[in-house]
Amino acid sequence: MNNYAIETVGLNFNFGNQVIVKDLSLQVPKGSIYGFLGPNGAGKTTTIKILLNLLKSPSDQVFIFGKEINSNRIATLKRIGALVEQPAIYGHLSGKENLINRCILLGIKKTKADEMLALVGLTEAANKKASKYSLGMKQRLGIAQALISDPELLLLDEPTNGLDPNGIIEIRNLMIDLATKHQKTILVSSHLLAEIERTATHVGIINKGELLFQGTIDELHLLSKPMLEIEVDQIENATALILKSGYEVITKTDKKITVPFISAQNSGELNTLLIKNGFTVSSLYKQRKDLENLFLDITKTN
């Protein structure tokens, strides 16, 4: 149990009759970046709120750093920084004042506010009213608030929401930096597999409140088998050739053939084979299964 920053044991949570989280057993190892993946309404935010004790979990189902959350609420929250849904920001205060207010509540030196503003690139907008901030700036301020107490565990609910590509890359690098250089554990939720793949070391996939997959990113890759899509002329003949050469054909349309991706070298060989036999290959590319298909796959195997 002590190797996990977060552990939930058969967690159940309902709003009235509506089941939101069902028998959820998360295991987030210390020092990992745990990608918490699922479509909208899957129960991600609810789970994060339970981890913050904003929603009360049944006793002995949620453990943070090995301690039961309900009986250790304050001690646990001291070790967590969080960004839940929209960042919680007082619109009438400036960005800096929002951070200073947090410093007051946490008993931290107020100079920390400037440090955090610099870290998330808001120094120039420090004295601007937060209600005048763009969505991306609010998101950065929310991340600064989560980081200000230097917590061991960070819970980030869709932190790249509303950020431009540059901002997304910065947040991604910041997360990697925090986990590798500062040994922080980060649980980051998203509905985009591609987003999670780039940073996460571990992944949990949730749908309709149920955990469908949990494991390392490599284990996920084994599940989300990549495909090779080949656009080629004379589809029928090309398909026959590919099959004859011992490959499996997954789908075939008027324009392209999809086969399992094995390796880059193998793709090259397949290309050569087609060309040598007189086919014109107009494109050949690796395609990952999208999240929906992955979900279907995972639900099938479970």
Binding site: K49, L52, L54, I74, L77, K78, V84, A88, L106, Q145
Partner: peptide, 18 residues
């Protein structure tokens, strides 16, 4: 209202304060 308006109740109750 300062908390309702800014949706900051969740932030307030997620702080390590009783």
């Amino acid at each position: 209202n300062i908390e309702h308006k800014n949706d900051t109740w969740k932030m307030l109750f997620a702080q390590p304060l009783n």
